[in-house]
């Protein structure tokens, strides 16, 4: 088994986007795809799972004679984002430290 990027990275990105503002499926997919290399169909199962786990909920807004379904963070979602953010900071510090050492070696 080689190195694997955990599926949680997708959750982290979605939670981060929704922490800034609520978004509907298409909009969310475009924002995720600007950061992560995922297919257009990848997001729905992740949204369903996160909704089922209580991290997100939805509400509908009428738009041009139909509804747009918006996703927003719940309190659990905000807590989960805080946990991911802590992990991310630790990781980033390790990377920064490692890259600094590499730069020294190069000199």
């Amino acid at each position: 088994m080689g190195f694997q990027i955990g599926g949680a990275i997708l959750d982290f990105v979605v939670l981060s986007i929704l922490n800034n503002r609520d978004a509907y499926g298409y909009q969310l997919t475009q924002e995720v795809r600007s950061i992560l290399d995922v297919s257009e169909t990848a997001l729905y199962p992740a949204l369903r799972r996160m909704q089922k786990n209580g991290l997100l909920d939805t509400y509908d807004v009428p738009y041009q004679g139909r509804n747009r379904r918006y996703y927003r963070l719940t309190d659990s979602g905000r807590q989960s984002l805080a946990d991911y953010t802590d992990q991310w900071r630790v990781f980033r510090q390790s990377m920064d430290h490692l890259l600094k050492e590499e730069t020294k070696d190069d000199c």
């Binding site: 088994m1 190195f3 990275i9 991310w88 990781f91």
Partner: peptide
């Protein structure tokens, strides 16, 4: 136990 952001697998 928890979801790990960077899973090293293994």
């Amino acid at each position: 136990t928890r979801t790990v952001l960077f899973s090293l697998g293994g």
